[in-house]
Structure formats: structure tokens, C-alpha cells
Write a protein that binds this DNA or RNA. Sequence first.
DNA 1: GACCAGGTATTGC
DNA 2: GCAATACATGGT
Length: 263
Amino acid sequence: MDYIDLAQTLECGQCFRWDHQPDGSYTGIASGRTLRVSEENLPDIIKDPFWNHYFDFDLNYTNIRAELAKKDPVLARAAEYAPGMRILNQEPWEALCSFILSQNNNIPRIRGLVARLCGEFGETLEQGGHAFPTPETLAELTEADLAPVRCGFRARYLIDAAKKVASGEIDLEQVRRLPLDEARAKLMTIVGVGPKVADCALLYGLHRLDAFPMDVWMKRAMRVLFPGRTPDFFGPYAGIAQQYIFHYSRMNPQLFAEDEAAS
DNA sequence: GACCAGGTATTGC
DNA sequence: GCAATACATGGT
């Protein structure tokens, strides 16, 4: 059976609500469900249809890696660096908000912002912890209400996103089915959502595997590792290729030492 | 204290 | 169009 590596999947920068426990397991919350997952209990976990889908067991990554590997030897190396990485099926609204909060920010702090947002405004769960707050809840808030989250200038972006989603002006499930450029354009009507955040919401929230978020790491990786290439070179699974390349680049910054000096 | 962080909006040419 | 700059906050 096609497998998953939890560390590669949960710590590759696509999600912000999973905590690595001392015993090696991960605890997290998705769609209001809490979970403790480890390599040991994973076979049981994925018998549950919700988690099976969440961890993307509908898709055969072995085949996709093989297809991507044929396109370029460097991509093949990046894919083999994290062969157990998968693109989660996160809640679309949560992914959108998470990546709005990600801008001009670092991953540890993004995790803190998301945790405080949930703690302050998310429904308290019976099993402990908090769900991600709904768009309806956030739409009622002011920037001052969001002060405890300490997300700075991103507060008004979050509120604008909440208003557009809660009102139905943006229907994320409808966006999921649009052609890629139309989907991006729709998301970019939200204040504070540019091309990169839109692509992250599409790839990580709406499971649009053709979306290819271009952050500073990816721009550098494309320049150095794939000169002359554009995202469409990677084909319909460009988003998965992006995630292999992103992770590979972050784990191997020495690849770009010369490029840094040059630029 | 400067500099940076999975960017974006705004401004000026 | 495209380059420069501000933007809140916290860590190094």
C-alpha cells in the first residue's frame, strides 16, 4: 500500500495545527476533530473515512512521484528526499486564513497566531482544544477584537476574508471547481490575498494540485534548480512538485549559498 | 538595534 | 507595468 510519513507531511509547512509529542506521535485538530496519530496507530486511523481522506489516501503518490521524476532529474531527487510527504485535505477556510496569517511571517510564529485565533474564537471541543473559528464568527469581529491574537496588520485581511465568505460573496466550494486562473482571481478579491496566498489556499485548502505557490524559497529554487522553467512544466501535479521542491530547498539551504552572494 | 520572516497594498516613476 | 516602501510582531 502507498504510505505516508507523518513528519514529512505534517512539518513541511502546509499546516500549522499539528504538534510533535515527545513520544513521537502528533496531536492535532481538523474540522473540529481531535486526533493523536503515530506510525503505530495509523493503520487504524485511516479506517475512518474522514481521516483517510484528510491524509489523502485517495491518491497514489508512488505513481505521481514516478511521473514527476521523469520530467527532471533534480525534481526526482527532491521527490525522493521526502517520498512520504502528502498534501492534506485541510478545511478550506482554515487554510485560507492560515496563509493570510503567513505573509511576511515565519512558521513558528504563524503556528502561534493560528493557535491564539482558535483559542480565542474557536468552539471549545469536548475532547479538549478548540475548533478553527467559523467565518461567521470572525465576520462579526473588529480589528480591536482580534488584538489578543497579535496578528498585526493581518487582522483586517482576516476580517475581510470572513465577511466575503460568510456573506456568500465567495463560496469556497465553488472556487474549488473553477479554472485555476479564475479561482485565483476570485480569492484575490479578498484584501490581503495576493497570488501566493491564493495559490496556498487552493493547493492546501481546496486540494487544487495544479496550484503552484511561489514564495521566496520557490523563486530562488526555480532560479537555481530549474532555470528557464515555469510552473506549467510540472504538469497537473505541479502543486505536489512544488511541495517536494520547497521542502528539499528548506532542508538544503547550502544549495543556494552562491546564489545569495550573486544576488 | 538592525534584520528577517512561505507577501501584499500603496505609491511613485 | 515595475521597483521601492510600509506594514505589526517576535525571534535572533
